[in-house]
Design a protein around this nucleic acid. Structure first.
Length: 249
DNA sequence: GTCCAGATTCGATGATAGCA
DNA sequence: TGCTATCATCGAATCTGGAC
């Protein structure tokens, strides 16, 4: 077995050579592992294939949710949102008690209150989570999707990034059917407030409720912009923007 | 040599059995 | 003991080729 003598303790694979740490120290060897066709056909790998099928369902469910809210989320997401959402969807898929192993489905698991609790509060941008940006309480109307903030003073109630001249708030009301793959989202008109504005009430109400049957998601979006000559410019590649799930029915 | 655009690859997510 | 393959997805990182 080849051993690493270099001062650089490598882990991972480079050019077909795998570097790893074992109880015997840092070692190197050729890529090993099982053959792809065996995983696809060997009865011994049935468990692996079942898990692959379920993982596929979880990843697709994550994409369905991200696609559904893309109109709000395109300016408020981090580079790991796909992985984080897949992780949550895999946990929800595990809550499916109706189907056999390998056939468990996010759509079935989503019916559970625990599943909704798991996804509620999900932040699409881990660099700007809602709880660390907005400090004032708000309410969500499950029938209309309206989000109300009784009193919002930007200077006191929002963590303002330097350079921001205005904050733009929007709400989203999405209905997603994870069994059929259908989704629809309606969005409120944006409320644009100067960062030095006086205390005020805010109402974010989508024009209509989504028509399709499915799990209802309520989302709050907060964008920061710098206004120059009546044109709004995003700050620092949108890294301060917030999009979070604030309710699920 | 540097820059840019487009193309390609990587990594993260979970569970699994076998190989070195 | 730890890596490999499978599954889907996509942003980030890296690579490649052409222009200057």
């Amino acid at each position: 077995m080849a051993q690493q003598k270099s001062i650089l303790k490598l882990k991972g694979t480079i050019g077909g050579i795998t570097f790893y740490k074992s109880k015997d120290g840092y070692l190197a060897r050729e890529k090993g592992g099982v053959d792809a066709s065996r995983i696809a056909n060997d009865p011994g790998f049935a468990r692996t294939r079942e898990n692959g099928a379920e993982f596929s369902n979880a990843a697709s469910a994550g994409k369905l949710l991200r696609d559904a809210v893309r109109v709000l989320g395109k300016d408020a997401s981090d580079g790991r949102v796909t992985a984080r959402l897949t992780q949550v969807m895999a946990q929800i898929k595990n809550m499916d008690e109706a189907n056999a192993r390998g056939e468990r489905h996010v759509g079935e698991g989503m019916a559970k209150d625990e599943a909704k609790a798991l996804l509620n509060g999900f932040n699409f941008n881990e660099n700007a989570v809602l709880g660390a940006v907005l400090y004032t309480p708000f309410s969500v109307d499950a029938a209309t999707g309206e989000i109300k903030i009784v009193s919002l003073n930007p200077q006191n109630d929002i963590s303002l990034p330097s350079g921001a001249s205005h904050v733009v708030l929007k709400s989203g009301f999405a209905s997603i059917n994870f069994l059929t793959g259908e989704s629809e989202m309606t969005v409120s008109a944006p409320v644009r407030i100067a960062t030095n504005a006086a205390e005020q009430a805010v109402s974010l109400k989508p024009a209509t409720a989504p028509a399709i049957e499915g799990t209802h998601f309520y989302l709050l979006s907060i964008d920061f912009v710098q206004s120059v000559n009546n044109a709004d410019y995003s700050l620092n590649n949108n890294s301060y923007n917030v999009l979070a799930i604030v309710g699920i029915e």
